[in-house]
């Protein structure tokens, strides 16, 4: 659960492009977080799990491979800006997709447990939306 799960993936989040489906994702945390905090993106499109290794991501106008975010400690994901996931699945404008997303944000200043693990604040989405 997350306090603002409804807003993580919005009605207008899906866009069809020539190379796949873009999914605009919003944070559910109250402050901007470094991109290294975006640690868990378990995405399923129409019942098919998407390997994060195949995802690329656009944030702040820059496009990265998902794995690259792990070293982007100096760039922040702002509270009102989307991160756009580029998903390599076939789509077209007007097509519906079921989007299931387990988003996990690793909070770098709230440490829990004996291993000083950052709090992983989860959010869960399950929506069927139409691509623009």
């Amino acid at each position: 659960m997350g306090p603002l799960d409804d807003q993580v993936v919005r009605e207008d989040s899906l866009t069809a492009t020539a190379d796949g489906l873009n999914v605009a994702v919003y944070t559910h945390w109250y402050r901007a977080l470094p991109l290294t905090s975006l640690t868990k993106v378990d995405l399923t499109v129409d019942g098919q799990p998407v390997d994060p290794a195949t995802l690329s991501v656009t944030v702040n106008g820059h496009r990265y491979e998902f794995a690259e975010l792990a070293v982007k400690a100096d760039e922040y994901w702002f509270t009102t800006d989307p991160v756009v996931l580029h998903v390599p699945v076939a789509t077209a404008p007007g097509r519906q997709h079921r989007i299931q997303l387990q988003l996990g944000l690793s909070i770098p200043y709230i440490l829990t447990g004996p291993d000083r693990t950052p709090l992983l604040t989860p959010s869960s989405t399950d929506k069927t939306l139409t691509a623009a």
């Binding site: 402050r31 290294t36 792990a70 690793s106 770098p108 200043y109 440490l111």
Partner: peptide, 12 residues
């Protein structure tokens, strides 16, 4: 201010 002590996944 926030002290993001776990800013980097692999170290403090």
């Amino acid at each position: 201010s926030y002290l993001d002590t776990k800013l980097y996944p692999d170290r403090w």
